[in-house]
Amino acid sequence: MTAHSVAPGAGGGAKARGANVVRATDLTKTYAADGVEVRALRDVSLDVEAGSFIAFIGPSGSGKTTLLNLLGCLDKPSSGRLEVVGTDVTRLDRRQAAAFRGAQIGFVFQSFNLIPVLTALENVEYPLVMVQDRPPSERRARVLELLEAVGMADQRDKRPEQLSGGQKQRVAIARALVTHPELVLADEPTANLDRETAYTIIALMKKMRDEVGTTFLFATHDTRIIGAAEIVYTLEDGRLTGRQERQA
């Protein structure tokens, strides 16, 4: 399968690099589990520049997923400040948070989470149809372009059950990018894939970042793919304990 390039200016264009898309200050997240207080995140502060390709690593339970959930406006911090794309997301209600996610954030899940009753093309099209209410003329070209870019154009009429894990994740990446989000969050995107496919998926994400300029943040404990990240944050016991910049 060949991945084609996506036109930088297509339907939204490449993002300007340099500005911060995430500004997190002293983020803390505390859960109550069985009456016991669990501090999943402790005083995490970080700024993320637009167009970054960042990995969060750490053992299970270190707070990677919790951090991504906060950055993705799926959850709210117990304390601390969090701005995503210039918006104080801690003040958003459920509806506003949903609308914000639909406009600014793309998600890539570990289990792909494609909608089983929709074809690959319809899955990619879904956010434009059901979230952004874009007209057919506007969305079809964008969807085909992205499917082409992730190398899934020839599989567009297949349903998720007819696709391999790697193919599903390609479709999921296209779906995450179809609304031109500022930020794509990927939680263990390669955990269910074999090594070769995992490399391919990370390379594809990076290629899309290069072409579109969208910021990619992904959580992983897969040491094989960490090398692709430009910045690697290490989380341990809910704290950011390391930041390592790598040469791309």
């Binding site: 609308a99 998600f107 989470n113 879904y126 059901m130 779906r175 995450a176």
Partner: peptide, 16 residues
Amino acid sequence: VREIGTIAAIGTLPSR
């Protein structure tokens, strides 16, 4: 439930 979580996460409004 997971499917609902997915469509909600990617921005589908509760009313939809």
